[in-house]
Amino acid sequence: MAVVSTRSGRLGNRIAIAIVLVITLIFLSPIYWITTTAFKPLVQATSVPPSVLFEPQITPFVKLFTKRAQLTGPVSPEVYEAAPWWEKLVLDGGERLARDGNGDVVFSAYPDRFVNSLIIAITSTILAVSLGTITAYGFSRFRVKGEADLLFFILSTRMLPPIVVAIPMFLMYRAVGLNDTHVGLIILYTAFNVSFAVWLMKGFIDEIPKEYEEAALVDGYTRMQAFFKIVLPEAATGIAATAVFCFITAWNEYAFALILTNRRAQTAPPFIPSQVGTGLQDWTVIAAGTVLFLLPVAIFTFLLRNHLLRGMSFGAIRK
């Protein structure tokens, strides 16, 4: 298994690598399929047999950001000539863009939902990581009575099923008017992520030698100065990794967003599926929305690759 030097061993190794490559391709094929669908012409997205070869186009993305209507008759050549290139793509597909009174293109709800997702995920990440870091420092460096119980309590809040928490939260938010507000979701996502941030950051801070701060204290720093000037810079990588994990969790969250928002503060996850059932089912547009939504997470996964193990095990397994 580990040390292979015989010829049969080398052959076995080659076979194993070949199997791994095939499995990787199978694993990635759904992602490949949704990505290509986002660049397909509508007819080819649902054609039988499924089309693998096609001329990529960005029409689905134009449609994703705009409100459209079915064309009733042929477009006059003057109108067609006057339209910008991206509008021509839509006209070619048999639809026209909806325009408001001033003749401006009307945007779809997708950009709003995307921005909501960004605002809520970023704000709650900053709050959760800040709270989590100082609490982790408190647990790491000072004696706290009932430490193990408190840490267990903190982690257990993360394990609660979202629907179970959502029932009372919905009623409480309704009573104080926080339903369908950014603040409401930010608070919930912060609560959800802070427990994770505490556990992960505690592992990172535990690894910073205490001697660093003690030397600073001897040099005349106060505890707070030592924390800000010595510990925080040392923990920077850990903070960044924790922040990315918190961001991804908040970005992907669905159940709370579905129950507690419906319009103004709705994020992208509950919005994207709600488009499946409305009107003409244009899978290319849904695919385009999906690809744009998944893109940040895919990038972050590559940035995070060395910390995934740690994050996924709440800092317990460090390798």
């Binding site: 647990f139 009932g146 430490e147 193990a148 119980d149 840490l151 267990f152 505690k202």
Partner: peptide, 11 residues
């Protein structure tokens, strides 16, 4: 925490 746990202080 590992010491606390070893001493039976927690989960």
């Amino acid at each position: 925490i590992s010491k606390t746990v070893a001493a039976g202080g927690g989960h």
